[in-house]
Protein backbone atom coordinates (compact mmCIF):
# COMPACT_ATOMS: atom_id res chain seq x y z
CA UNK A 1 0.00 0.00 0.00
CA UNK A 2 2.77 2.32 1.04
CA UNK A 3 4.70 1.82 -2.17
CA UNK A 4 1.60 2.56 -4.21
CA UNK A 5 1.17 5.84 -2.42
CA UNK A 6 4.81 6.64 -2.98
CA UNK A 7 4.45 5.88 -6.65
CA UNK A 8 1.52 8.21 -6.88
CA UNK A 9 3.29 11.16 -5.34
CA UNK A 10 6.37 10.45 -7.39
CA UNK A 11 4.33 10.40 -10.54
CA UNK A 12 2.56 13.61 -9.56
CA UNK A 13 5.86 15.39 -8.94
CA UNK A 14 7.40 14.31 -12.23
CA UNK A 15 4.23 15.28 -14.09
CA UNK A 16 4.61 18.75 -12.62
CA UNK A 17 8.15 18.90 -13.93
CA UNK A 18 6.84 18.25 -17.42
CA UNK A 19 4.61 21.32 -17.41
CA UNK A 20 7.23 23.71 -18.87
CA UNK A 21 7.89 21.28 -21.70
CA UNK A 22 4.22 21.00 -22.55
CA UNK A 23 3.81 24.76 -22.34
CA UNK A 24 6.74 25.29 -24.71
CA UNK A 25 5.38 22.73 -27.13
CA UNK A 26 1.95 24.28 -26.92
CA UNK A 27 3.17 27.78 -27.63
CA UNK A 28 5.87 26.99 -30.19
CA UNK A 29 4.31 24.07 -32.05
CA UNK A 30 0.57 24.07 -31.67
CA UNK A 31 0.31 27.88 -31.71
CA UNK A 32 1.83 28.45 -35.15
CA UNK A 33 -0.06 25.46 -36.52
CA UNK A 34 -3.39 26.83 -35.42
CA UNK A 35 -2.40 30.23 -36.71
CA UNK A 36 -1.66 28.71 -40.10
CA UNK A 37 -5.03 26.95 -40.24
CA UNK A 38 -6.68 30.24 -39.26
CA UNK A 39 -4.68 32.06 -41.92
CA UNK A 40 -5.76 29.60 -44.58
CA UNK A 41 -9.39 30.49 -43.93
CA UNK A 42 -8.82 34.26 -44.42
CA UNK A 43 -8.99 36.40 -47.54
CA UNK A 44 -6.01 37.88 -49.29
CA UNK A 45 -4.92 41.36 -48.33
CA UNK A 46 -4.58 43.86 -51.16
CA UNK A 47 -0.88 44.48 -50.85
CA UNK A 48 0.33 42.26 -48.06
CA UNK A 49 -1.10 40.20 -45.21
CA UNK A 50 -4.74 39.22 -45.01
CA UNK A 51 -8.24 40.46 -44.34
CA UNK A 52 -10.24 39.02 -41.49
CA UNK A 53 -12.93 37.54 -43.67
CA UNK A 54 -13.63 33.80 -43.29
CA UNK A 55 -13.72 31.94 -46.58
CA UNK A 56 -12.94 28.56 -48.12
CA UNK A 57 -11.88 30.20 -51.37
CA UNK A 58 -8.22 29.39 -50.84
CA UNK A 59 -8.93 25.67 -50.71
CA UNK A 60 -11.15 25.93 -53.77
CA UNK A 61 -8.39 27.78 -55.57
CA UNK A 62 -6.00 24.90 -54.86
CA UNK A 63 -8.18 22.76 -57.11
CA UNK A 64 -7.07 24.83 -60.12
CA UNK A 65 -4.91 22.85 -62.60
CA UNK A 66 -1.84 24.99 -61.87
CA UNK A 67 -1.78 24.03 -58.21
CA UNK A 68 -3.14 20.54 -58.68
CA UNK A 69 -0.44 19.74 -61.25
CA UNK A 70 2.23 21.01 -58.90
CA UNK A 71 0.91 18.70 -56.21
CA UNK A 72 0.97 15.74 -58.56
CA UNK A 73 4.45 16.60 -59.86
CA UNK A 74 5.71 16.78 -56.27
CA UNK A 75 3.99 13.53 -55.42
CA UNK A 76 5.52 11.87 -58.45
CA UNK A 77 9.03 13.06 -57.62
CA UNK A 78 8.62 12.08 -53.98
CA UNK A 79 7.36 8.62 -54.90
CA UNK A 80 10.12 8.07 -57.43
CA UNK A 81 12.84 9.28 -55.05
CA UNK A 82 11.45 7.21 -52.18
CA UNK A 83 11.27 4.09 -54.35
CA UNK A 84 14.89 4.49 -55.43
CA UNK A 85 15.94 5.25 -51.85
CA UNK A 86 14.27 2.01 -50.71
CA UNK A 87 16.12 0.04 -53.40
CA UNK A 88 19.46 1.52 -52.35
CA UNK A 89 18.93 2.04 -48.64
CA UNK A 90 17.29 -1.22 -47.60
CA UNK A 91 20.12 -3.52 -48.74
CA UNK A 92 22.65 -1.05 -47.36
CA UNK A 93 21.06 -0.96 -43.91
CA UNK A 94 20.50 -4.71 -43.97
CA UNK A 95 24.09 -5.62 -44.78
CA UNK A 96 25.42 -2.98 -42.43
CA UNK A 97 23.60 -4.70 -39.56
CA UNK A 98 25.44 -7.93 -40.37
CA UNK A 99 28.92 -6.39 -40.20
CA UNK A 100 31.25 -6.83 -37.24
CA UNK A 101 30.88 -4.13 -34.61
CA UNK A 102 34.15 -2.50 -35.73
CA UNK A 103 32.92 -2.14 -39.28
CA UNK A 104 29.53 -0.98 -38.08
CA UNK A 105 31.19 1.94 -36.30
CA UNK A 106 33.24 2.80 -39.38
CA UNK A 107 30.19 2.72 -41.66
CA UNK A 108 28.22 4.82 -39.20
CA UNK A 109 30.96 7.43 -39.24
CA UNK A 110 30.95 7.48 -43.05
CA UNK A 111 27.19 7.98 -43.10
CA UNK A 112 27.33 10.76 -40.52
CA UNK A 113 30.31 12.54 -42.07
CA UNK A 114 28.37 14.56 -44.70
CA UNK A 115 26.10 15.99 -42.00
CA UNK A 116 29.03 17.98 -40.67
CA UNK A 117 28.75 20.26 -43.68
CA UNK A 118 25.72 22.35 -44.56
CA UNK A 119 23.39 20.51 -46.91
CA UNK A 120 23.17 23.60 -49.12
CA UNK A 121 26.92 23.62 -49.67
CA UNK A 122 26.94 19.91 -50.43
CA UNK A 123 24.17 20.52 -52.93
CA UNK A 124 26.27 23.14 -54.70
CA UNK A 125 28.93 20.44 -54.92
CA UNK A 126 26.54 18.49 -57.10
CA UNK A 127 26.38 21.43 -59.50
CA UNK A 128 30.11 21.00 -60.11
CA UNK A 129 29.53 17.30 -60.72
CA UNK A 130 26.53 17.71 -63.01
CA UNK A 131 27.21 20.90 -64.96
CA UNK A 132 28.06 20.71 -68.64
CA UNK A 133 31.66 19.56 -68.93
CA UNK A 134 31.64 19.04 -65.15
CA UNK A 135 33.22 16.22 -63.16
CA UNK A 136 30.73 13.59 -64.30
CA UNK A 137 30.91 14.54 -67.98
CA UNK A 138 34.69 14.55 -67.93
CA UNK A 139 34.79 11.18 -66.22
CA UNK A 140 32.33 9.63 -68.67
CA UNK A 141 34.19 11.04 -71.67
CA UNK A 142 37.52 9.95 -70.22
CA UNK A 143 36.19 6.42 -69.82
CA UNK A 144 34.83 6.58 -73.35
CA UNK A 145 31.22 6.01 -72.28
CA UNK A 146 30.08 9.23 -73.96
CA UNK A 147 31.79 11.52 -76.48
CA UNK A 148 30.04 14.80 -75.71
CA UNK A 149 28.84 16.49 -72.49
CA UNK A 150 25.46 15.17 -71.27
CA UNK A 151 24.19 18.48 -69.85
CA UNK A 152 22.72 16.77 -66.80
CA UNK A 153 22.39 19.88 -64.65
CA UNK A 154 18.88 21.35 -64.55
CA UNK A 155 17.30 18.06 -65.61
CA UNK A 156 14.87 15.80 -63.81
CA UNK A 157 17.44 13.02 -63.16
CA UNK A 158 19.73 15.57 -61.48
CA UNK A 159 16.91 16.50 -59.10
CA UNK A 160 16.22 12.83 -58.35
CA UNK A 161 19.89 12.21 -57.61
CA UNK A 162 19.89 15.24 -55.32
CA UNK A 163 16.85 13.91 -53.47
CA UNK A 164 18.41 10.49 -53.06
CA UNK A 165 21.67 12.02 -51.90
CA UNK A 166 19.96 14.16 -49.28
CA UNK A 167 17.59 11.54 -47.91
CA UNK A 168 19.33 8.18 -48.30
CA UNK A 169 21.04 8.28 -44.87
CA UNK A 170 17.67 8.41 -43.13
CA UNK A 171 16.52 5.25 -44.87
CA UNK A 172 19.81 3.48 -44.17
CA UNK A 173 19.72 4.34 -40.47
CA UNK A 174 16.06 3.39 -40.10
CA UNK A 175 16.53 0.00 -41.76
CA UNK A 176 19.80 -0.55 -39.93
CA UNK A 177 18.33 0.04 -36.49
CA UNK A 178 15.57 -2.42 -37.27
CA UNK A 179 17.87 -5.07 -38.76
CA UNK A 180 20.27 -4.64 -35.82
CA UNK A 181 17.58 -5.93 -33.49
CA UNK A 182 16.82 -8.89 -35.70
CA UNK A 183 17.45 -12.33 -34.21
CA UNK A 184 19.25 -14.04 -37.11
CA UNK A 185 18.61 -17.44 -35.58
CA UNK A 186 15.07 -17.02 -36.85
CA UNK A 187 16.44 -17.15 -40.38
CA UNK A 188 18.28 -20.37 -39.48
CA UNK A 189 14.99 -21.75 -38.16
CA UNK A 190 13.20 -20.83 -41.39
CA UNK A 191 15.91 -22.46 -43.51
CA UNK A 192 15.76 -25.52 -41.28
CA UNK A 193 12.01 -25.77 -41.86
CA UNK A 194 12.42 -25.74 -45.61
CA UNK A 195 12.64 -22.10 -46.67
CA UNK A 196 15.05 -21.07 -49.40
CA UNK A 197 17.21 -17.99 -48.78
CA UNK A 198 14.71 -15.83 -50.66
CA UNK A 199 11.69 -17.30 -48.92
CA UNK A 200 13.32 -16.89 -45.51
CA UNK A 201 13.94 -13.25 -46.41
CA UNK A 202 10.39 -12.50 -47.55
CA UNK A 203 8.64 -14.40 -44.78
CA UNK A 204 10.90 -13.61 -41.81
CA UNK A 205 13.47 -10.86 -42.35
CA UNK A 206 11.29 -8.48 -44.34
CA UNK A 207 8.28 -8.53 -41.97
CA UNK A 208 10.57 -8.16 -38.95
CA UNK A 209 12.44 -5.20 -40.45
CA UNK A 210 9.21 -3.65 -41.74
CA UNK A 211 9.03 -1.09 -38.90
CA UNK A 212 12.44 0.22 -40.00
CA UNK A 213 11.50 0.25 -43.67
CA UNK A 214 8.21 2.03 -42.95
CA UNK A 215 9.81 4.67 -40.79
CA UNK A 216 12.49 5.06 -43.47
CA UNK A 217 9.72 5.70 -45.99
CA UNK A 218 8.14 8.28 -43.70
CA UNK A 219 11.51 9.94 -43.09
CA UNK A 220 12.22 10.21 -46.82
CA UNK A 221 8.83 10.64 -48.41
CA UNK A 222 7.61 13.48 -46.23
CA UNK A 223 10.72 15.67 -46.56
CA UNK A 224 10.94 14.95 -50.29
CA UNK A 225 7.56 16.65 -50.72
CA UNK A 226 9.00 19.80 -49.25
CA UNK A 227 12.71 19.93 -50.13
CA UNK A 228 12.19 22.71 -52.67
CA UNK A 229 15.78 23.94 -52.65
CA UNK A 230 17.00 20.69 -54.21
CA UNK A 231 14.63 21.11 -57.14
CA UNK A 232 15.57 24.80 -57.31
CA UNK A 233 19.32 24.29 -57.29
CA UNK A 234 19.65 21.15 -59.37
CA UNK A 235 16.52 21.54 -61.50
CA UNK A 236 16.74 25.25 -62.30
CA UNK A 237 13.26 26.68 -62.28
CA UNK A 238 11.93 24.04 -64.62
CA UNK A 239 10.72 21.77 -61.89
CA UNK A 240 8.27 23.45 -59.52
CA UNK A 241 7.31 21.54 -56.41
CA UNK A 242 4.87 22.21 -53.60
CA UNK A 243 7.69 23.42 -51.42
CA UNK A 244 8.88 25.96 -53.97
CA UNK A 245 5.35 27.03 -54.66
CA UNK A 246 4.66 27.72 -51.00
CA UNK A 247 7.82 29.77 -50.84
CA UNK A 248 6.87 31.55 -54.07
CA UNK A 249 3.33 32.38 -52.97
CA UNK A 250 4.69 33.81 -49.78
CA UNK A 251 7.56 35.90 -51.13
CA UNK A 252 6.65 36.90 -54.66
CA UNK A 253 2.93 36.14 -54.81
CA UNK A 254 2.27 37.81 -51.50
CA UNK A 255 -0.73 35.52 -51.08
CA UNK A 256 -0.45 34.52 -47.48
CA UNK A 257 -3.84 32.76 -47.10
CA UNK A 258 -3.36 30.65 -50.23
CA UNK A 259 0.14 29.74 -49.12
CA UNK A 260 -1.24 28.73 -45.71
CA UNK A 261 -3.95 26.61 -47.34
CA UNK A 262 -1.32 24.80 -49.37
CA UNK A 263 0.78 24.18 -46.28
CA UNK A 264 -2.29 22.87 -44.44
CA UNK A 265 -2.99 20.39 -47.25
CA UNK A 266 0.64 19.25 -47.25
CA UNK A 267 0.48 18.83 -43.51
CA UNK A 268 -2.75 16.87 -43.72
CA UNK A 269 -1.08 14.50 -46.17
CA UNK A 270 1.87 14.09 -43.83
CA UNK A 271 -0.39 13.43 -40.86
CA UNK A 272 -2.33 10.88 -42.87
CA UNK A 273 0.92 9.08 -43.65
CA UNK A 274 1.97 9.07 -40.00
CA UNK A 275 -1.44 7.79 -39.02
CA UNK A 276 -1.10 5.00 -41.56
CA UNK A 277 2.33 4.15 -40.19
CA UNK A 278 0.94 3.89 -36.67
CA UNK A 279 -1.83 1.70 -37.94
CA UNK A 280 0.51 -0.72 -39.71
CA UNK A 281 3.42 -0.85 -37.30
CA UNK A 282 1.30 -0.51 -34.12
CA UNK A 283 3.81 1.94 -32.71
CA UNK A 284 4.21 5.67 -32.76
CA UNK A 285 7.97 5.34 -32.56
CA UNK A 286 9.94 6.11 -35.71
CA UNK A 287 12.74 3.58 -36.02
CA UNK A 288 16.18 5.12 -36.47
CA UNK A 289 15.13 8.57 -35.37
CA UNK A 290 13.61 8.31 -31.92
Amino acid sequence: MKSEKQKKTKYGASALLLVPMYLTALVLVLGPLLYMVYLSLMSRGEVWGFINDVTLDNYVQLMEPLYLNTFFASLKLALLSTALIILLGYPFGYFMARLSSDWKRRMMLLIMLPFWTSSLIRLYGWIIVFRSNGTLDQLLMFLGVTDSPLRLLYTYPAVVVGMIYALLPFMILAVYSSAEKMDWRLVDAARDLGASRLKAFTSITLPLTMPGLLSGIILTFIPSMGLFFIADILGGNKIVLVGSMIQDLMTRGRNLPLEAAMAVVLMAMTSALLWLYRKISRTSKLEGLV
Binding site: R185, L186, A189, D192, P207
Partner: peptide, 13 residues
Protein backbone atom coordinates in the same frame (compact mmCIF):
# COMPACT_ATOMS: atom_id res chain seq x y z
CA UNK B 1 15.91 -33.06 -40.76
CA UNK B 2 14.46 -30.47 -38.39
CA UNK B 3 15.81 -28.68 -35.38
CA UNK B 4 14.44 -27.59 -32.02
CA UNK B 5 16.62 -24.56 -31.31
CA UNK B 6 18.10 -23.74 -27.96
CA UNK B 7 16.38 -20.35 -27.80
CA UNK B 8 13.26 -21.82 -29.49
CA UNK B 9 13.59 -19.26 -32.34
CA UNK B 10 9.83 -18.94 -32.70
CA UNK B 11 8.76 -16.42 -35.32
CA UNK B 12 7.52 -13.52 -33.18
CA UNK B 13 5.25 -12.08 -35.88
Amino acid sequence: VNTVFQSYALFPH
